[in-house]
Amino acid sequence: MTASETGTENAIYMSGVEFAWSGTPRFQMSIAELAVPSGQTVFLLGESGSGKSTLLSLICGINQPSDGWIEVAGQDIVIMKGAARDRFRAEQIGVIFQMFNLLPYATALDNILLPLRFAPERRRRCPDGRGEALRLAEALGLPTALVERTQAAALSTGQQQRVAVARALIGQPQIIIADEPTSALDANAQTAFLDLLFEQVHQMGATLLLVSHDIRLAERFDRRLDIQDIAVVRRDTT
């Protein structure tokens, strides 16, 4: 079953995926099916240890499944070669992590600009990368002077997360993947942060897949999924 066969266009589609981590402890994951429709915001509930990091790595093409089908932005990423997959990720996906998102020694501006270095398409979409980076930062409530001069390490956690959002959004990738982006923020900051994120994602018409253990965030998403319904994880400690 491919994206076209499902009727709706999927930004992310996985089916029959098997993954095995050969290190210690041994770790296996099976994913029957996961579909994230294009242009929607999807909340994926997952406790730590539920395999969500592995799931995201599979979607981003950093880990390779032993079997199954993974389609991102209409393309089969399993059959891609390593370098092509890295390039594809750079072009199509913006990633936001929970913490330590940024290169601490680089300025906020350089952090935002970094993905463009690896994604010619995204670079083409914003010829004035610097201007676009500052515009995004401004929209996310980061003053220009701060973005240009301050090292990421000197920013507050909330500011860092907004820089990470700007980095994920620059050059308008189709898919934004966020892994616990709010866990380091307090409740008020979480709401403000999600407001900004949603606003920008909607403006771009991008697909958002946000993974969190915090069900309270789920309300405003188009769809809500639980990783336990999607993935089966087996661990052998022997």
């Binding site: 390593g82 890295d86 390039r87 992590f97 330590f100 290169l103 690896f118």
Partner: peptide, 16 residues
């Protein structure tokens, strides 16, 4: 390692 993971996440090949 975190720094390298960030590079990877924005699309840098391991060669980079």
């Amino acid at each position: 390692r975190r720094e390298m993971a960030i590079f990877r996440s924005v699309g840098a090949r391991p060669g980079v």
